[in-house]
Amino acid sequence: MATVKFKYKGEEKEVDISKIKKVWRVGKMISFTYDEGGGKTGRGAVSEKDAPKELLQMLEKQ
């Protein structure tokens, strides 16, 4: 499965596409929420050019 690499609050993070719950576009950025486990929801964003094609496909399906 594909992963998304991004920075959040200065920390490098990587999340599996299957854990992503919601995806939306903000200008040229793709924002998303994902399941961190333990009932927590994380947030992240990547630029449109750095987003994996699976993430862009999720955006188109909504």
Rank of each mutant, 00 (worst) to 15 (best):
E60V: 13
I17H: 02
Y34R: 00
K13T: 04
K7F: 08
T3N: 03
P52S: 03
A2R: 08
G44W: 03
K21V: 12
Q62M: 13
Q62C: 15
A51I: 05
V4E: 00
Y34P: 00
Q62G: 15
V15N: 00
S47Q: 09
S31C: 09
D35S: 14
V46H: 02
V15S: 02
E54Y: 04
M58D: 03
R43N: 15
E36S: 05
E48M: 04
E60D: 10
E12S: 07
K13N: 03
Y8P: 01
L59P: 02
G10F: 02
K22I: 13
K61F: 12
L59N: 04
F32C: 03
E36A: 12
D16W: 12
V46L: 05
R43D: 10
E11F: 05
E14R: 03
E14F: 03
K22F: 15
E60K: 08
K28A: 07
K40D: 11
G37W: 11
Q62I: 09
R43Q: 12
Q62H: 14
M1I: 09
G38K: 12
E60G: 04
G10K: 02
S47P: 14
Q57W: 15
K5W: 02
G27N: 13
A51H: 02
V26D: 04
T3A: 05
Q62V: 06
T41P: 14
I20R: 00
D35H: 07
V15D: 00
D35Q: 12
S47N: 14
Y34T: 01
K19Y: 14
T33E: 09
W24G: 03
K40F: 15
W24D: 04
I20T: 02
K53R: 04
T41N: 14
D35A: 09
E11M: 04
S18G: 08
Q62N: 05
D16V: 09
G38E: 10
K53A: 10
E14P: 00
R43V: 06
E54W: 05
D50Y: 07
K22H: 15
D35R: 06
M58R: 09
V23N: 01
L55C: 02
S31Q: 08
A45E: 15
W24E: 03
G44L: 02
F6T: 01
S18W: 15
G38A: 11
V26N: 15
G42F: 15
E48S: 06
G39K: 05
K19W: 11
V15F: 01
D50R: 08
S18M: 07
K7G: 04
E48F: 05
E36D: 08
T33G: 05
K53W: 13
S31E: 12
G39V: 11
K5I: 03
K49S: 07
F32H: 00
D16T: 10
G38V: 13
A45T: 07
G42D: 14
G38T: 11
K22M: 14
I17V: 11
A2T: 13
K40S: 14
M1P: 09
G38M: 13
E48R: 05
K5V: 03
E48A: 07
A45W: 05
S47D: 14
F6N: 01
M29T: 10
L59V: 09
K28F: 06
K49Y: 06
I20A: 01
K19M: 14
L55G: 00
G39D: 15
G44M: 01
K9Y: 10
V23T: 13
V15K: 01
F32E: 00
K49V: 14
M1K: 10
E36N: 12
T3L: 10
D35Y: 06
L59E: 06
G38S: 09
I17R: 02
K22P: 01
M1H: 10
T33L: 06
I17C: 09
F6A: 01
E54A: 08
D35K: 08
E54F: 09
L55W: 08
T33Y: 11
G39H: 11
E36G: 10
L55Q: 01
K22A: 15
F6M: 01
K61G: 09
S31T: 10
K7N: 06
A51L: 12
R25S: 11
K7A: 05
G42W: 12
T41K: 15
E12G: 03
M1Y: 12
V46M: 06
G10D: 07
G44C: 02
K28N: 07
K5E: 01
E54S: 05
D16C: 15
D35C: 15
W24N: 03
K19G: 04
Y34N: 01
L56K: 09
E60H: 15
M1N: 15
I30P: 00
V4G: 00
K53Y: 10
Q57M: 14
K21M: 15
T41A: 10
K28C: 14
Q57D: 08
S31F: 08
G37M: 12
Y34W: 12
M1T: 10
D35V: 13
T33P: 00
D16E: 10
K5C: 03
K49Q: 08
P52I: 13
T33F: 10
K53F: 13
I20W: 01
A45M: 09
V15A: 04
Q57F: 12
E54N: 07
D50L: 14
V46D: 00
G37H: 14
D16N: 15
D16G: 07
Q62W: 03
V4L: 04
M29K: 05
G37V: 12
V46T: 11
R43S: 06
G10N: 05
Q57R: 05
V4P: 00
Q57I: 13
V23W: 06
L59Q: 09
K53L: 13
K13V: 06
E12R: 07
E12F: 10
A2F: 05
M1R: 04
P52R: 02
Q57T: 13
S18V: 13
S47E: 08
V46G: 01
K28D: 04
D35T: 09
K21D: 09
K28W: 05
K22R: 07
K61W: 14
I30V: 09
K5D: 01
A2C: 15
A2E: 05
I30T: 02
A2K: 07
R25I: 08
V46A: 05
E11G: 06
K9W: 05
Q57P: 04
F32W: 01
V46K: 02
A51E: 02
S31R: 10
D50A: 11
T33M: 08
S18L: 14
M1D: 06
Q57A: 12
M58N: 04
G27E: 07
G38D: 06
K49L: 12
S47A: 12
D50M: 09
E60I: 12
G44K: 00
E48I: 05
E14L: 02
K49P: 07
W24A: 04
G44D: 01
K40G: 15
I20H: 00
K7M: 05
F6P: 01
G38P: 10
K7I: 07
